[in-house]
Design a binder for these strands. Structure first.
Lengths: 232, 232
DNA sequence: CAGTATCCGATGCGATACTG
DNA sequence: CAGTATCGCATCGGATACTG
């Protein structure tokens, strides 16, 4: 992108010139969350086209925010943060705290992209807190007009949690029946599992031990303990 | 603007949805710097059309960032920060520090809008540090193709510094001959007056006392003492 | 897996002119 | 002073298809 400058004598504004083009900060945040491969980043930010992602990554490289490195081990390409991007983390974290305090809960949990939601959900499962065997969880979202409404998470000791959008060949240990908004609210710390269950927006069935320990294996939002946070 | 959401489970990204549309943060920064009137804000951010400024101010109001109040004293309209916007200040200040450390000096001081520059210059003059009489300063910029190349600052005890772009009816006490880039670098703390003078990019003539005390009456950038700041 | 290549529609935004 | 009204172009970016 031909950077459209503001031409102001103001460092904040200069930072904006690097950061405010659409998707730049979500991409940074996704890389911080652990993604480094092109398609992981793409899935994490949900809606971006590969053409645009490619373009943005190049710009961010040119601006010194990320580095593109070939990974000889896997033969793939990795995108990693530069020192400059690492140094920005505290700033964006304080922005996150601000958002949690001041942005209305209904605004914050609306319009969620389901593809990004389940990708985030996958990362929110702490496999080591589950029974140390294969655990299969099925999530069904009752919202109308979704691109898809069911996904499965497979946790196995010693490997990453796997996300499937087609029926896996295993028995399901936990059934979750809910809505996109409820899961969004939980993952954004704007509600809790027990609250959604109590209000009849989330139903759990299956392995009782897994249900009982959901508070342990479902990761809390990093921003769960901010004071003054608004709930749905 | 129909807010284009990202649909992600991420507070940072939610903040971006409110903040990243063009001009929003520069407007906020300008209000922090002391402007509250429509046309002051407009001049402060330099290039925005009144139509777009009007639109942005409405959106920012709707998002809870600013309040529009009628000032019965003057009959005018004032735009003031809400608590939400005040709470964002530390975040944006840390972004400014980041920009000063990591954005290359040449990038930071290029493309300066001259209208915004002289408006900022006006605010950088500390009138109480000047001789307590009328002081007239003439700035001439030798850059080619400027919309205008000369401006005058009038300081008088007890009133705000005035900015003129046409010849005032007073004798000039201080002549400044320089470039947009040099003044930009000084106001952005990417250089100093003495350095620009030494390098032959800034010439001062006129009242010797005023020249000698320029370090006192020309305000330092708020971000002057950041470590690792790059100079031009 | 990690991108390119094209297409095209929406709209952001700058420019200009006008108003109470 | 504090905006509206209108216009029109550039371009942003989403969709889709294709590639080594």
């Amino acid at each position: 992108m031909e950077v459209k400058t503001y031409g102001l004598i103001c460092p904040i504004t200069k930072a904006c010139e690097l950061l405010e083009s659409r998707w730049t900060i979500p991409i940074l945040a996704e890389i911080w969350s652990g993604s480094s491969r092109f398609n992981d980043i793409r899935r994490g930010v949900g809606n971006i086209s590969s053409a645009l992602l490619s373009k943005r990554l190049k710009e961010m490289q040119a601006n010194g925010l990320i580095e593109r490195v070939d990974d000889p081990a896997t033969g793939g390409v990795e995108y990693v943060r530069t020192e400059m991007a690492v140094a920005l983390e505290p700033t964006l974290n304080s922005m996150a705290v601000w958002a949690q305090r001041f942005i209305d809960a209904d605004v914050a949990v609306s319009d969620t992209n389901i593809a990004a939601l389940i990708w985030k959900l996958r990362r929110s499962v702490i496999a080591t807190e589950l029974p140390q065997r294969r655990v299969v969880m099925r999530f069904h979202f009752s919202d109308p007009n979704l691109d898809f409404d069911t996904c499965w998470l497979l946790a196995q000791p010693g490997s990453e949690v796997e996300l499937c959008t087609s029926v896996p060949d295993f028995d399901v240990d936990l059934f979750v029946e809910t809505t996109v908004k409820s899961i969004s609210a939980i993952l954004m710390a704007r509600s809790t599992v027990s609250r959604e269950v109590d209000e009849g927006r989330l139903f759990l069935s299956g392995d009782a031990r897994i249900i009982k320990s959901i508070g342990k294996w479902l990761r809390e939002s990093d921003y769960a303990d901010i004071e003054g946070i608004a709930t749905v």
